[in-house]
C-alpha cells in the first residue's frame, strides 16, 4: 500500500501512522452540549465505501494528512494536508 503525501509524493505505507476517522478535525464547540460531544468522542460510522482518515507522515515530513479512501476497493482517491492550505 502506498500513500501520496501532499508534500513528499507517493511513499510506502510504513512511513505513515494511522490515527483514525478525520472527524477529529470537526471538534464541537466547548458548549455544544453532551449529545454533540458524545457523538464526537464515541460514535463512528463504519462505511462500506468512501471514508476519510487522518494519517501522519511520521517517517517523513511530519505532515498530518486527510486520506479519502474506499473500504471496499482500497482505492485512495484523494490526499490533502489536514492543515488546509499548503505551507
Amino acid at each position: 500500500m502506498r500513500i501520496t503525501c501532499p508534500y513528499c509524493g507517493e511513499r510506502d505505507r510504513r512511513e505513515f501512522y494511522y490515527r483514525g476517522a478525520a472527524v477529529d478535525l470537526d471538534r464541537p464547540a466547548p458548549d455544544a452540549g453532551p449529545d454533540a460531544w458524545d457523538d464526537f468522542v464515541y460514535l463512528r460510522d463504519n462505511p462500506a465505501g468512501e471514508t476519510r482518515d487522518l494519517w501522519y507522515h511520521e517517517g517523513g515530513c511530519g505532515a498530518w494528512i486527510v486520506v479519502t479512501r474506499n473500504t471496499l476497493t482500497h482505492e485512495i482517491s484523494a490526499t490533502e494536508p489536514a492543515s488546509g492550505g499548503k505551507r
Binding site: 517517517g59 515530513c61 511530519g62
Partner: peptide, 10 residues
C-alpha cells in the same frame, strides 16, 4: 532531498 526512513530511523 527527502525526509524518509533509513531502516528504523527518521
Amino acid at each position: 532531498t527527502a525526509r524518509t526512513l533509513l531502516f528504523h530511523m527518521n
